[in-house]
Write a protein that binds this DNA or RNA. Sequence first.
DNA 1: AAGACGCCGATTTTT
DNA 2: TCGGCGTCTT
Length: 733
Amino acid sequence: MNIEETKNHLQGLNPRQIQAVEHFDGPLLIIAGAGTGKTRVITHRIAYLIENLGVLPRNVLALTFTNKAAGEMRDRVIGLIGEHARGILMSTFHSFCNYILRREIGRLGDFTDGYTIYDESDCRSCMKDILKSSGLQASGPFAPARVLELISRAKNFESKPSESLRPSDPLVDYIDNLFDKYEERLKENNALDFDNLMIKTVHLFEHHREVIERYRRRFAFVLVDEFQDTNRVQYRLLTQLAPPDGNVTVVGDMDQSIYGWRGADVGNIVSFESDFKNVTVVPLEQNYRSKQRILDTANELILKNNNIHEKRLWSELGEGEPVNFFLAWDEHDEAQFVTRKTDALLSEGYLLNDVAVLFRTRAQSRVIEEHFMRAAVPYVFIGATEFYKRKEIKDIIAYLRVLHNPRDFVSFARIANEPRRGIGDKSVEKIEAEARRVGSLFDLPDREKELSKDFPKKAFPILKLLKSLASRAGGMSISAFVDAVVRETGYYDALAKEELQEGVSRTENVDEFISLAAEYERGTGKPELEGFLSHLALVSDADVTDTGEDRVRVMTLHSAKGLEFPVVFIMGFEEGLLPHASSQSESEIEEERRLCYVGITRAREHLYVSASRSRMMHGSVGRNDVSRFFFEAGQHHFKVLKQAYGEPAPGESFLDEDESGAAESAAWRGKRGNDVDEFEGCEPDYIEEGDIVLHKAFGRGTVLSMDGGEICVSFPGRGPVRLSAKFAPLRKV
DNA sequence: AAGACGCCGATTTTT
DNA sequence: TCGGCGTCTT
């Protein structure tokens, strides 16, 4: 703890960042705008606490949302203070809860350690089952996914699911009951879903003072990343871990809150300031990522949200060029624009890796992927979590789960007849009922005569085999065990037989899974099946953005959060897509606006925003207006490109880079109607679709279509207006 | 138990 | 329009 080290951990930080790093006692709220060096501040703060203030690594807990964020944080802290950073617990909320519950869940009475963690598809199977046995048709308003979403909402908002439904909804009379049944079923299966991992931990802490006291002492320093994404339950967990005057640091940016629909509650930022005592607030506004004009655009857009704290990002990276805007004829034209522009950038010296293509919905990826493929532009879609969703992988995991938790009937149903052994749905039901009666699958008698006569006899071999495998689990390595499972159950053979018709990849996947197990063993101190299963459920490979290869990244705006690229394309900048048509309320629109903000602030140097006049949606051609966000962000921030590639021809751009200021004030004059004369020489013949025009009363707008004598212009905040081309007081800008 | 057919639905998805 | 899923058929 000498001066040199002090210097190290504060070096290269701006005054605000230093304030955040040096803060010692009491709650700290860091409001970290996009690209303001948030991770840097957190990691330096952790390093500073440990090396300069003498805090013990084991007393520090850092919570994140993604494994990727946790991993990055760990790597960077290790880079700062070396290996003793390993003593710090840096994990996701869910992994942290799993860490606690594996030790303490027995105290709750309802579950035993060895519980299974259900992912979304497990929960869906479970709910489908419940719906079926309740005599409800599992589709339409009763779609398992819908029911589960409502249940999840209720759990995260600590309310009843029926409360978020309209009284006329067909589900309303059933949902609360389905909720109870679902929870009951999870309990019977000794399984927890992701929500319950959090909720049970909070319950545990609430009802067992001695436990929470222990962990409070242990984790005297708590840090939370992406605080704007926490839900109510996670917030409660935080208040349990840290007393009101505790050493708790939260870092967040409400402008980047894009998971409200999943229960994230920005209100937690407000609550934090009131629930904790003497909160120090440190805002970070200096951006180290983007050129100023990109930030100006983002700043102006987010101003339209009704925020308590106004924030203005600024950078010293230079002005840069305006945001480019391209209005395409249709989605193919738009994709071609992106493809050609990408090509042009490559010949300018950019790498494929420098480029990201973002859009609102996954469905939009298809067109751009087609065009990239045709043009031989190497790309990768980020967000497809292929491997773990493969049938054969899920099957093997189901085997492992049953072997570890013989009450996991969701997994048992999956593998009972996989490979085929003549055990149909009816048989599975009977086995399950009987197993529930006696306790678990392993408590079923081995001998036929001890069971009722209609118990499916075909089940004996597999039940016996499962019991035998389970008894041997502890005696060998995980990878050897997985190998034994796929061989002895006949799974591997069945796949091998299939190979001839199906192709080669499925056994390869199984082999890869086995080496994955081996890799887990190598990387873990005391490898056990339980830990491996937790790892599979919580640390799956969802967030691989680094493919190691040079490729354009194609992804949704949501997946882009936390990333940055020298060149960013945002496609489908249209009403109905961004904001999405299903976002109606003001708060939903605000979230869409934040999503747009997140997209814009991903760009370091160049940002290309595009919209299309027409696009195929749900099987028919639709026309969308240019997004309101285009107008809200300030049209003067954009340079409108008229061609799919290259720069606009002289005079074609409605705004020359150098004249933006002048053009802006002209626009404002026009809007206020002071400059009447400017409209005198309206020559509709010169106006074409896509032009930016100035209207005497409405101000600037974009020409959407020209139809005979009628011209349709989209004005900011007003939407499309039909005007007479002849008489409308319009002037091309 | 696998293939054909018809129907429904269609935002985003850290764990 | 398209694809995933459930049901019906063989």
